[in-house]
Design a protein around this nucleic acid. Structure first.
Ligand SMILES: [Mn+2]
Ligand SMILES: [Mn+2]
Ligand SMILES: [Zn+2]
Ligand SMILES: [Zn+2]
Lengths: 138, 138
DNA sequence: TCCTACAATGGACAATGTCTAAGTCAAGCA
DNA sequence: TGCTTGACTTAGACATTGTCCATTGTAGGA
């Protein structure tokens, strides 16, 4: 994470209080926050930060490959700082909880040429859906 | 897709001009339209149909299991009438073109118990991303 | 044909995201 | 250290997508 800040600085990223705060919010354990959630947490550390800056900064982090956009629910995009370890997601249909998961096998290999229709396939996203233990017991 | 209309009528669905038009728009080849695209095509057949009715009808078709919601792009939801044949999607990252695909193997079996975190996993969505032949040649 | 419960309408409202003009400041340089 | 400047931030307007509600209309049964 200071890793992240270091990497960004090394790539010529101009460091501002706002960008530092956004990076700090995404730091640490594997979170999957919406832009507004990132903004709310950023405001707690830097009250004057604007929504536009949060959106801009998230967009830049995505372009730089430091953060992934995931669309696990069908509402707001979520921002995933776990960009350097390929993984997929397990989502609770009831409460929206998200876990990172690592399935065995390579789903890309499961798509035969006859099912590629001339596309160059470069990536695959897998979203498992179900009910989390919390919601199951309630 | 008069099949669809028959099934719906059989389930006690009150048939109106608006609902018929929405069902007709979704009929036929495998389309993946946004709600606004469905509305635009519906208006061509029934100019006075409202946006709210299109949203309501799509929501009902989803509840009835006759249409699937898919979130292949990160903007509007898309509505998929190919609900009775399990399949996944291949999306062009450039132009957004969507194809139905049928990978081999069962991705559910690729998620070991140790990666389920106590969830009851009931469903999996796979989205392949790449470049379509059109966009590749351009 | 008439009734009435269910459906459609239009418009307000909400949530999410994008854009711009004007002000501010990080970082390099004298 | 103190300028200079281009990049960054801000507030708020605007756009897109989706939801809600009060009113009006109508499908389908009696
Ligand atoms: Mn993740
Ligand atoms: Mn499909
Ligand atoms: Zn849950
Ligand atoms: Zn394409």
């Amino acid at each position: 994470m200071s890793d992240l800040l270091e990497r960004l600085r090394g790539r010529g990223w101009r460091m501002t209080a706002q960008r530092r705060v956004v990076a700090e919010v995404l730091d640490g354990e594997h979170v999957h926050l919406t832009a507004d959630e990132v903004h709310a947490r950023a405001v707690a550390k830097l009250p004057e930060i604007s929504r536009a800056t949060v959106y801009n900064t998230l967009g830049e982090l995505v372009s730089l490959g430091e953060v992934l956009e995931v669309a696990t629910d069908k509402r707001a995009k979520r921002y995933d700082p776990n960009a350097h370890q390929p993984h997929h997601h397990l989502v609770c249909a009831r409460c929206g909880a998200i876990r990172d998961v690592h399935p065995t096998g390579n789903p890309l290999a499961d798509l035969p040429d006859s099912e590629r229709f001339g596309f160059t396939v470069s990536d695959v996203e897998v979203t498992y859906r179900g009910t989390c233990p919390n919601c199951a017991s309630a």
